[in-house]
Design a protein around this nucleic acid. Structure first.
Length: 584
DNA sequence: ATAGGGTTAG
C-alpha cells in the first residue's frame, strides 16, 4: 500500500518510461488519479523529461479534470522541446488553453512559447507571441525579454531583437550575454565587439559566457589584441580552466595567426573535449600545416576523444594545402570506414581541392562525378580554381559550363576563366569574359579586409574612401608602393594579367587605378603601428596574385611580418617570402 | 511544479 507521499517520491526518482508505467499503475490502484499534485507531477515527467513520452503525456493530460496552469505549462513546454514541425503545436495548445479553460497563462507559459518560436523558424509566430505577452502585461519581464531577443534573432530579425534589448526596462548579465551571442551567431562580429564597450559602461560585469562569445567574434575578425585582453580577464577570474573559455581561446589564437599561443593554452587545459582538439587541428589545417594536424589527430585518438566531421575538415584542409594527396585520400576513407561519418559537401570540396591543387585535374573531376552532390556549384568552382593554377583551359571551360547550367555563375568565376584565357594568350576569350561580367544578372561578392589597430577593428573595401583618415592612408599607400617597388615590386598593369585569380577574389578590371582592400589595410597598419610589429589582415575573399606579390615585397621593404588570413587559409609573409610557397 | 546565456565548420 503506497500513500500519496510515497508515490510522489517515486515520481521524483523516476528516470524511464518503464518505471513510470509501474508508478502509474500504483496511482490507479490506489485511486490517486484525481489527486492534483500527483497527476501534475506525472504529467510533467512524461511531457518534459528526456526519457518521457509526449504521446503518453497527452493521454494523462486529457484525463485531468479541469487542468490548471501548471498542467498546461507542462504540455506547452513538452511541445516546445519537440522536433521540428511539432513545436508549433505549443501555440495550438496555448490557444486551446485560452478558449477552453479558465487557466490563465503566466510568464512561464510565454517563456516556453518563445522557445518554440525560436526553434520553429517562423518569424510571424514570434511576433504573434510577442503580442500575447504585451496583452497580458508581461513585456517588462527580464527573462521574457531575453527570450524575445533570442527568438527574434533566431528568426533572422536581429534588428528587432536589438530593439527589444534597447527598450527593456533593465538588462542583467544574461540579457547582455544573449544579445552578444546573437550578434556573434548571426555573423555580425563587429556589432558583438561593440556591445562589449557598452556593457562595460553598464556595470553588469562579465562571466565565461560573455568571454566565449566575444572570443569567437575576435577570432572571426582577427582582433588579436582584444582577444589577448579577454585572455587576461579570463586569467583574473580563473576562467581559463573553464573548458568553453579554454576552447574559445585556442580558436581565437589560432585564427589570429598565433599557433604558438594556441598550443600553450592547449597544453595547460586540465580537460579536453572534441572542440579542444578540433580547434587545434583546424588551426594547423588552415595554416597549411597538414603534418602537424595529422600528429594532433593521432594524439586525439590516443586520448580517446572521438573525431567528428569537423575534425576531418581540418585534416583534409591541411593535407590539400600541403600537397599530402595520399594522406588526404586515406583520411577521407577513414571517415566512413572507421568512424561511421558520412562525408558532407565540404569534405568533397576538400577532395576536389586536394587533387586539383596537386595538378590531378582528372581525379578532381572524378571526385565531383562520384559525389552525391555533383550539382553543387561550390565543387565546380573549386575545380575552376585548380584549372587556373594549372592553366587548363579545357577542364576550366567545362567547370564554367556547369556553373552556367546550375545558374550560379558569379563575377569571380568569369574573372577566373578570363585569367586562364589570358595565360593561354586567348584574347577573345578574355574579351568574352569581360563582356559577360558587365552584363547584368551576374552576382558579385564585395570584398573587404579587416585590420585591428589599437582597440579598434577597421574595415576597408576596394578603393575605400570612407575612413576618416582616408587621405593619409592613400598618401601612405603611395609611399608603400614606392618603397616596395625599390626592392622589386612591379604592379601588374595589364588587366589581362592583373585579373585576380580566384572565383572569390575581389575583381576589378581597371587594376592600374584600383586598390584592393588589403593594400589599404596594410598601408593603414604600417602607418599606425610601431616599426617591427607584425600585422594581421583578415579578408572575406581570397588574395589576388598582385596583392600576394605586393605583400611579399612590403614584408621585405619594411622588415615586417604580415599575416593574411583569407577565405581559405593563412599566408605568413616575412622577408619577401610567403609560408604558402606560392601554393594557394 | 516550471523560465533566459557559451566554443570548432558553414
Amino acid at each position: 500500500m503506497a500513500n500519496a507521499r510515497a508515490i510522489l517520491s517515486l515520481l521524483q526518482g523516476c528516470n524511464s518510461m518503464r518505471k513510470l508505467h509501474k508508478i502509474h499503475a500504483h496511482i490507479l490502484i490506489n485511486g490517486y488519479q484525481h489527486n492534483p499534485s500527483i497527476s501534475e507531477k506525472l504529467l510533467n515527467f512524461c511531457a518534459v523529461s528526456v526519457s518521457g513520452s509526449l504521446a503518453y503525456a497527452q493521454l494523462v493530460f486529457h484525463r485531468i479534470h479541469n487542468p490548471q496552469t501548471p498542467a498546461w505549462n507542462s504540455m506547452i513546454r513538452g511541445f516546445s522541446q519537440s522536433p521540428s514541425p511539432l513545436q508549433l503545436q505549443a501555440i495550438v495548445f496555448y490557444n486551446h488553453m485560452l478558449s477552453a479553460s479558465h487557466a490563465r497563462p503566466d510568464t512561464y507559459t510565454f517563456s516556453f512559447l518563445l522557445k518554440a518560436c525560436e526553434e520553429a523558424k517562423e518569424e510571424g509566430k514570434c511576433r504573434e507571441v510577442h503580442g500575447f505577452i504585451i496583452r497580458f502585461g508581461y513585456d517588462q519581464d527580464v527573462v521574457l525579454c531575453t527570450n524575445l531577443i533570442r527568438s527574434y534573432a533566431g528568426n533572422g530579425l536581429i534588428e528587432t531583437a536589438h530593439k527589444v534589448f534597447e527598450e527593456m526596462p533593465a538588462r542583467d548579465l544574461v540579457s547582455w550575454n544573449s544579445m552578444i551571442s546573437c550578434y556573434c551567431q548571426t555573423g555580425l562580429h563587429e556589432e558583438a565587439l561593440k556591445m562589449y564597450d557598452q556593457m562595460r559602461i553598464s556595470n553588469v560585469g562579465f562571466d565565461g559566457f560573455t568571454l566565449v562569445s566575444l572570443l569567437s567574434s575576435c577570432a572571426h575578425v582577427g582582433a588579436l589584441h582584444m582577444g589577448v585582453q579577454m585572455h587576461r580577464f579570463a586569467g583574473e577570474r580563473r576562467l581559463v580552466e573553464n573548458i568553453f573559455v579554454g576552447n574559445a581561446l585556442i580558436d581565437m589564437y589560432a585564427k589570429c595567426g598565433s599557433l604558438a599561443s594556441a598550443l600553450s593554452i592547449f597544453n595547460s587545459m586540465p580537460k579536453r573535449d572534441v572542440f579542444t582538439w578540433n580547434s587545434m587541428i583546424v588551426g594547423y589545417g588552415v595554416h597549411g600545416r597538414g603534418d602537424e594536424a595529422i600528429t594532433f589527430f593521432g594524439s586525439m585518438l590516443m586520448a580517446g576523444v572521438r573525431p567528428n566531421s569537423i575534425t576531418f575538415l581540418g585534416l583534409l584542409c591541411g593535407c590539400s594545402h600541403q600537397g599530402l594527396v595520399k594522406e588526404g585520400v586515406q583520411y577521407f576513407h577513414m571517415m566512413s570506414s572507421e568512424f561511421n561519418l558520412k562525408p558532407g559537401i565540404k569534405h568533397y570540396g576538400c577532395m576536389v581541392d586536394l587533387f586539383g591543387r596537386a595538378g590531378k585535374l582528372k581525379e578532381a573531376l572524378e571526385v565531383i562525378r562520384s559525389s552525391p552532390s555533383q550539382h553543387d556549384p561550390v565543387l565546380w568552382r573549386t575545380l575552376l580554381g585548380s584549372c587556373k593554377i594549372h592553366r587548363n583551359v579545357e577542364i576550366g571551360e567545362m567547370a564554367m559550363r556547369n556553373l552556367v547550367q546550375l545558374g550560379s555563375l558569379g563575377a569571380g568565376d568569369c574573372v577566373l576563366l578570363s585569367g586562364i584565357y589570358a595565360e593561354a594568350k586567348d584574347l577573345q576569350g578574355v574579351a568574352r569574359m569581360r563582356k559577360l561580367i558587365q552584363s547584368r544578372g551576374i552576382k558579385t561578392t564585395p570584398g573587404w579586409s579587416w585590420i585591428e589597430v589599437g582597440d579598434q577593428v577597421h574595415r576597408f573595401v576596394v578603393d575605400d574612401k570612407s575612413h576618416p583618415d582616408s587621405r593619409e592612408i592613400y598618401r601612405k599607400l603611395e609611399e608603400v608602393i614606392h618603397r616596395a617597388s625599390l626592392v622589386g615590386y612591379a604592379m601588374e598593369e595589364s588587366s589581362l594579367v592583373a585579373a585576380p585569380e580566384s572565383n572569390t577574389q575581389e575583381y576589378c578590371w581597371e587594376t592600374s587605378t584600383s586598390y584592393h582592400s588589403e593594400k589599404l589595410a596594410i598601408a593603414y597598419g604600417l602607418a599606425r603601428t610601431p616599426e617591427g610589429t607584425s600585422l594581421l589582415i583578415v579578408k572575406n575573399l581570397r588574395v589576388c596574385r598582385d596583392c600576394h606579390n605586393f605583400t611579399k615585397f612590403v614584408s621585405m621593404a619594411f622588415d615586417r611580418e604580415i599575416i593574411v588570413r583569407d577565405r581559405v587559409r593563412f599566408h605568413h609573409f616575412k622577408g619577401g617570402h610567403c609560408s604558402c610557397k606560392e601554393f594557394w
